[in-house]
Design a protein around this nucleic acid. Structure first.
Lengths: 187, 187
DNA sequence: CTCTTTCTAGAATGGACATTCTATTTGCGG
DNA sequence: CCGCAAATAGAATGTCCATTCTAGAAAGAG
């Protein structure tokens, strides 16, 4: 390398997360990302081969942040704690939570990301999925799995959604609802 | 009128619902709508002033279909029945359910629809919202309202979501989960 | 100090899409 | 059966984007 880089890749990734968290996937145009990073558009392409590359990298970072929090609890068989960890993660990382939980993964992309990134995304996703599956040690059946995923993940996400959409803080009664939900639905 | 119309407004609205149900809001381009209706693009503009007009009309039709089903039950104070009516509506109207329940309303539009349609959308939305509020006769407080909306609507929607996304049928265990959820969360 | 590679800067290109425009039909009122 | 208002048909326009391109600058190697 001969000339030092003025813009690190992270700047663009952070800008993309901000924009998507605030205005949805369509707000993260290459021009908007560049502007938010204070760089010319062209410079993004010295770090990433395409828009989907930037967004996929952002997804990986945010998903890893959540996964790191949930996996140990899930693997320790602590169902209720897992569900509550989701709400506390959302409280601490409102921006990341809006990015990840308010958007269907596919909606983030217009073009599919390159093979390598797609693989890594799938790997992270499956790592979490498998932990949900493993959580149901002996139990089995479609309904049992659906109940576990809802009690631990989809239910809490649905409880968070209105507050994430409003952009406001997550009230403490959400935790009470998460607990009630967990008790009632867990298989 | 001097020349008879070959394409009725409904054809375009139905096409838009189909396209959005199958491929999300971005799939409903004016060219795609026209193609699906078997009409030239220009003809759409003899019935609707803009894309947002077509989509708003579609939303009104689908939302009315759901609302017609829920309002009487809600007004009769039948909470559990309301929650279950949502899943049975989704079973009978898979296409409409995908259109309405998988998309945030704002995501359907790129431009805001004209005043008149916006008003009517807001009216229908508020009619349903107020019924949820009225459902909690004497009770009050933010948490009580959040619980009612979740037990009766957002929870069931979250339970339906994976099946709507998969495009497949809605299994009967979803109704069992809706009942458990309702009992546990309702204030 | 100069060469060379990799960067910044931002203008140019090309494609997708909503919307408008120009012909061209159609079929009812007179 | 004529004339014309309202439709069809589909090409043309303008905008917004992702991506590429052209110039010029920077800084470590030698």
């Amino acid at each position: 390398m001969v000339r030092t880089a003025k813009f690190q890749p992270e700047v663009f990734v952070e800008a993309a997360i901000d924009l998507i968290a605030e205005g949805g996937p369509s707000a993260a145009t290459m021009v908007a990302i560049a502007r938010k990073a204070g760089a010319p558009t062209g410079s993004i392409y010295h770090r990433f081969t395409s828009r989907s590359c930037v967004v996929a990298t952002a997804w990986l970072a945010v998903h890893a942040s959540l996964s790191t929090r949930l996996l140990p609890l899930l693997r320790a068989g602590k169902g209720m704690e897992t569900a509550l960890a989701l709400t506390s993660w959302a409280r601490e990382s409102l921006r990341e939570a809006r990015f990840l939980l308010l958007n269907e993964t596919d909606d983030l992309f217009e073009d599919t990301p390159p093979e390598t990134l797609r693989r890594e995304m799938q790997r992270q996703q499956e790592e979490l999925d498998e932990a949900f599956f493993a959580f149901l040690k002996q139990e089995q059946g479609e309904e049992a799995l659906a109940r576990a995923k809802f009690a631990l993940f989809d239910g809490p996400v649905a409880l968070l959604r209105p507050h994430l959409l409003a952009g406001g803080p997550v009230p403490s009664y959400v935790d009470r609802m998460v607990m009630d939900l967990h008790q009632a639905v867990a298989a």
